[in-house]
Design a protein around this nucleic acid. Structure first.
Lengths: 370, 370
DNA sequence: GTGAAAGCGCTAACAG
DNA sequence: CTGTTAGCGCTTTCAC
């Protein structure tokens, strides 16, 4: 089943058939029709290998993820697929599992397959070595970044995300705001904390308890930290958490300490990890890193680079805030109930996939810089 | 950078270079060495397109997921990648989002790229139309199944999983066992319930409350159902839940009703969704569908089919039980504390990805049938 | 043991 | 407007 078969059936030469099928060159409408019909009838499918061999373009890109299919790389992959897949470009998926050997192996097979470009995703804020030097195709780093400033890297603006959370809490009238977050060795934890502190400083405040509580990214740590924080910072009326799991633990601990969320203590999480944030009691207001958007941007930048318009540098993409119950402003009037009624489950949802959202509130535009 | 360049540098003909590099045909050790060194020096990378064009094999397979990158398809994809990726085979990822148009579009581009085979994954127990008829390459359905019995489909054995859960509860001395699960329209919910009921019947028992409580796959539903169940089935000493979210809701509601898990009421969930099951209070014993294993099996079956050893039919793969706190057998001696102490977080875990596990307990072997 | 030549399926350049 | 020719990079006969 080749173009020659089609040509024969249509009574033309292969060259003519090729032009007819690709709408190139002057072909009489009549012939073109005949060729198309022949192709249709035979169920002709062009051989992308042959075409790629000749044209030097494979209409294929590689996606190397160092983070297996983690919670962070998945939306990035989806976004990249959004930008590339529906068009002509197919995506080769490679899971390097943070193993340099495996990564180089995949890089090699991608290059052998003559991909037109490569996206590298990860999960760390911390910079990484470039995947290779002088590669014959463009590379975009998404949700991870290369130490080489000549490379293009796209990451979320964690610092701005932290500021966003705190400014929101301030805007709802809170002023004694604590911060519970993950391990100090994560750059993301440091950046989010810094953003929070800067936003507070801009309002002439500092963190309740004096400094961030660094610990683990777990609910358990959220509960522990809450107990400490409630003791050490009596006037506390809000807690910004470094991720949603911590926030959920905090929510439980606050409630179990006899306080109300959000009436007594408002909460903001980070990640907008639907399954955690939405089923927390109460559901969590949280910072969304817009990872899918980030992935899409990576796909688009890669396309641009493939078409000869490369870009470079570290780009920070904006986070946004998703509003839910946990930071609802205090009612000016009647005293609220002692326990916030659990929201009823949306009907007909079935096995939940990451889907529904609160109301997203975009922050500033993407800005470049380090 | 072609094989011709390598050949020239090594002072041989392209044909000889090819043989040397692929270890085919009689080539003197000496020449082979020279060619390899030349290739090395030039950083030669064979062109997979050209090779595929000639040999008819692309060493590439397509993976079409209808479930976006859902919680179920991800481990399946990982498993498939495990089986295929590290070898010579690369995986084209296509996300059809349950859209037939998109699916056909992807199918076409996969065939144009001359993939050697295709894996279709989904998330429903319910059968689906075959992706195409008389395709030129083998297809394996994983975590979804085709209505055509001539197709090979691999799905988890939900019914056996339900039975496994109940047998475990019985073995820890429980006898009044309720079942809270998702919507009746999900075949998985029906199968798990059936398995549970059969296991009970084999012990001469029936479900506490008489029948399964069908609802939503949510924590909220778990909490609601618990309240109902505690009222309607006073002697209740265990609840088997249709998924981990429900189980987590149940755990909270049981605790908030003043009962202890597992001392008063033991719990078993379903899915082993790490983030839910492990951070529940207490952590959940749960049924694991071994999806990664399933994906791996799909990859291996596809490989076999590509090599001319196809198989057919609906294959049910075994679930296993992951033991955690929520179903710990009652201590024969001293009365346990009123509240199970929350387990401390494993140190140094960082941003958690699906990882740690409880102790897995394999169930029976895979069995065919439908 | 090695080289020459043919051809995988397609498109681009050039004739006609 | 259409046909012919050449060649993308590789492997594979088949001579030598």
């Amino acid at each position: 089943m080749t173009i020659t078969d089609v040509a024969r059936l249509a009574g033309v030469s292969p060259g003519t058939a090729s032009k007819a099928l690709n709408g190139r060159g002057g072909i009489s409408a009549d012939t073109a029709d005949r060729v198309r019909q022949a192709a249709e009838r035979l169920g002709y499918q062009p051989n992308a290998l042959a075409r790629g061999l000749l044209t030097g373009r494979s209409f294929t890109v590689g996606l190397i993820t160092t983070d297996s299919f983690g919670r962070f790389s998945i939306p990035v992959m989806q976004g990249a697929e959004d930008a590339l897949g529906p068009g002509l470009i197919s995506v080769f998926l490679c899971d390097s599992r943070d193993d340099r050997i495996r990564e180089q192996h995949y890089l090699r097979t991608l290059l052998e397959r003559r991909v037109d470009g490569i996206i590298v995703t990860g999960r760390r804020q911390d910079p990484r070595e470039p995947i290779g030097r002088d590669l014959p195709v463009p590379v975009v780093y998404a949700m991870t970044h290369s130490t080489d400033p000549a490379d293009l890297s796209l990451i979320p603006d964690d610092e701005e995300g932290g500021a966003l959370a705190v400014r929101h809490l301030l805007s709802t009238g809170r002023s004694s705001i604590g911060h519970v977050t993950g391990p100090r060795r994560f750059k993301a934890a440091l950046l989010r904390a810094r953003g929070a502190e800067k936003a507070l400083a801009a309002a002439g405040l500092e963190l309740a308890g004096g400094e961030p509580l660094f610990g683990e990214w777990t609910e358990e740590w959220g509960r522990q930290a809450t107990d400490a924080l409630l003791r050490s910072a009596p006037g506390l009326d809000a807690i910004f958490c470094g991720n949603d799991q911590i926030a959920r633990g905090v929510a439980d601990a606050v409630r179990e300490a006899g306080l109300r969320v959000p009436e007594d203590v408002a909460l903001v999480g980070f990640d907008n990890w639907e399954v955690i944030a939405a089923s927390s009691r109460p559901p969590l207001t949280t910072v969304d890193m817009n990872l899918r958007e980030l992935g899409r941007a990576a796909g688009e930048k890669l396309l641009a680079a493939i078409e000869g318009h490369p870009s470079a540098g570290l780009h920070l993409l904006p986070c946004s805030l998703v509003l839910r119950e946990s930071s609802r402003p205090r009612q000016p009037s009647a005293a609220p109930p002692a326990v916030v009624p659990a929201q009823s489950a949306p009907p007909g949802q079935g096995q939940p996939a990451p889907s529904g959202q609160g109301r997203p509130v975009p922050s500033g535009q993407a800005r470049a810089g380090g």
